[in-house]
Every structure is written in structure tokens, then in C-alpha cells.
């Protein structure tokens, strides 16, 4: 277990500590400095673990479930950190979103770590471009999820989050993050199509992963149109954002492993 040393388990422990610190800060209406510090250290340590594996195996973290989970844990926490630093008034949403990301951390602990070999079709610049765009999309979506969870927690009496703005403002901020996510998801689909055209001679073939990626795009488009309806309200919008995340989560962490040969680079 943990072929690249203790960096990974240490970072996973730090993610847990950051989530706990966020909850404590939210309860005490604190300033979240400890959460930000722990998150920064966790990302640095995890970054070393990913880098060491990348160098050792000579390919990026996008071949098997372990690598995809690990790199997404890093990129999602990174997106949350950057989002909270760029928009400081949403820092308290860390208490809502970091526990959600702990699900991925726990999942990673039970996924076997094996050395992998990148299929020959992965040797293109369009793969890292495609993957990076996808991570930015999901990162923005997770920021929106954090804000939406706060809205729903308030409405259901599970928390007040007094340091955060009102529900309408959170709804508007979540909308902004989803708008950015929409741009990057569109770019991700385009980069993926270019890669598929190069690798297999077809830009789109409705394989399960492609289908679900497109369904995710459609669900974001539906949300953007839904918000323009008169009866759109923060609570409904928040539920919609969570729905988008569920679909996106299934696409990212479920479909690559039931998809047909191309995305798995089979023999």
C-alpha cells in the first residue's frame, strides 16, 4: 500500500483535519484561518504524492480509478481553496463542502493502488487538456454545491451559517460558479472530441462516458434555463445544482469504468 511513501496518507489525514476545522469554525463563527492553512498543507503534501507517482510511472493520474480519484481529490480541494480565497465571503461554505469531499477521501482509502500503464491512445496533448478542463468544470460545480448545501441547510434548520450572505446572494454566487463550469464543460467536451477524432477516427460515438458527459452538459443547460423561469427560487435552484453534481459525479467516477473500450484504451 502507498508505493510512493507516506505523502498520500498524510495528506488524506490533513484533508480530514481541514474538514473538522471548517466545521468548528462554522459553529464558532470563526475566521477559517486554520482550515485554509490545513488545506494548503494537505494540497502541498498530496501534490508531492501525485508528482512522485507521475514521475515513477511516466504518465499523468488519469488511467485507473485510484489515479482519477486521487487527482480529483486534489483538484477539487484546490478549486475550493482558490474559490474561497478569490471570494472571501463564501469561506464559511467550507464547512458544507469539505465534508462532502471527504467521501472521496474515504473512497480512495479502499481503492487498491496498482501501477498502471497508459494506453497508446493516451499519448496526446489533448488528453491532459481534456482532463484539466474537466477538473476546472467539476471544481466550479463543487463550489456551487457548497453554497447550495448552505441554502438547503438553512431552510431545513440544520445550520445558520451566520457569516455567509443571505440565500439570494448565495444562489446568485452558485449561479456564477455554474456559469463558469458550463464554459469549461463545453471546452472539455470539445477537447475530448478532438482527442477521440485523433485517436479513434470519430469525434463522437455515444459511448457511455460520452453520453453521460453530454447529459451532464444538458443538465447544466437545463439549470441555466430553469433559473430564468419566474418560479425559480433559491431552494429549487440549490436542489438543481445538487442534481447536476450527482450527474457529473456519476459521469466522472462511475462511467469511465463501465464504458466501452476506447476510453479504457483496451487491447
Amino acid at each position: 500500500m502507498f508505493a510512493d511513501g507516506a505523502w498520500l496518507p498524510i495528506s488524506l489525514g490533513l484533508y480530514l483535519a481541514a474538514a473538522l476545522a471548517a466545521i468548528v469554525s462554522a459553529v464558532r463563527a470563526g475566521a477559517f484561518q486554520m482550515t485554509i492553512l490545513l488545506l494548503s498543507v494537505a494540497l502541498s503534501v498530496h501534490g508531492i504524492a501525485i508528482f512522485k507517482r507521475w514521475i515513477r510511472l511516466d504518465h499523468g493520474p488519469y488511467v485507473d480509478l485510484f489515479e482519477i480519484l486521487s487527482s480529483n481529490i486534489w483538484s477539487l480541494h484546490f478549486a475550493v481553496l482558490i474559490g474561497c480565497l478569490a471570494v472571501p465571503r463564501i469561506k464559511a461554505s467550507l464547512a458544507a463542502v469539505l465534508p462532502v469531499l471527504l467521501v472521496l477521501v474515504v473512497w480512495l482509502l479502499v481503492v487498491p493502488e496498482r501501477d498502471t500503464l497508459a494506453p497508446i491512445t493516451y499519448g496526446t496533448i489533448w488528453l491532459p487538456v481534456h482532463v484539466t478542463l474537466g477538473k476546472i468544470f467539476l471544481g466550479c460545480a463543487v463550489l456551487a454545491v457548497g453554497l447550495s448545501l448552505v441554502v438547503l441547510a438553512r431552510l431545513s434548520g440544520l445550520g445558520t451559517f451566520v457569516t455567509l450572505p443571505g440565500n439570494r446572494a448565495l444562489d446568485e454566487l452558485a449561479y456564477r460558479f455554474i456559469l463558469i463550469a458550463f464554459i469549461f464543460e463545453t471546452l472539455m467536451l470539445v477537447a475530448g472530441a478532438i482527442w477521440a477524432q485523433d485517436a479513434w477516427g470519430r469525434y463522437w460515438a455515444w459511448d457511455p462516458l460520452e453520453t453521460w458527459a453530454f447529459v451532464t452538459w444538458l443538465s447544466v443547460a437545463a439549470y441555466l434555463h430553469f433559473r430564468a423561469l419566474r418560479w425559480s427560487a433559491p431552494a429549487l435552484n440549490a436542489v438543481f445544482v445538487l442534481g447536476i453534481f450527482v450527474v457529473a459525479f456519476s459521469t466522472f467516477f462511475g462511467m469511465p469504468f463501465v464504458s466501452t473500450a476506447p476510453h479504457k484504451g483496451a487491447i
Binding site: V215, L218, H225, A228, L229
Partner: peptide
Amino acid sequence: SLRVTLACIGVAVAVALFGD
């Protein structure tokens, strides 16, 4: 209408998932 837009998107999702 936006309702027509949403209905069409919903049908597109259903077809993408179950149309084959």
C-alpha cells in the same frame, strides 16, 4: 417558451440515455 426549452432538453436527456 422556456418551458418548451426545458421539455426539449428533458426529452434529449431521455433519448440520449434510453433511445438506443
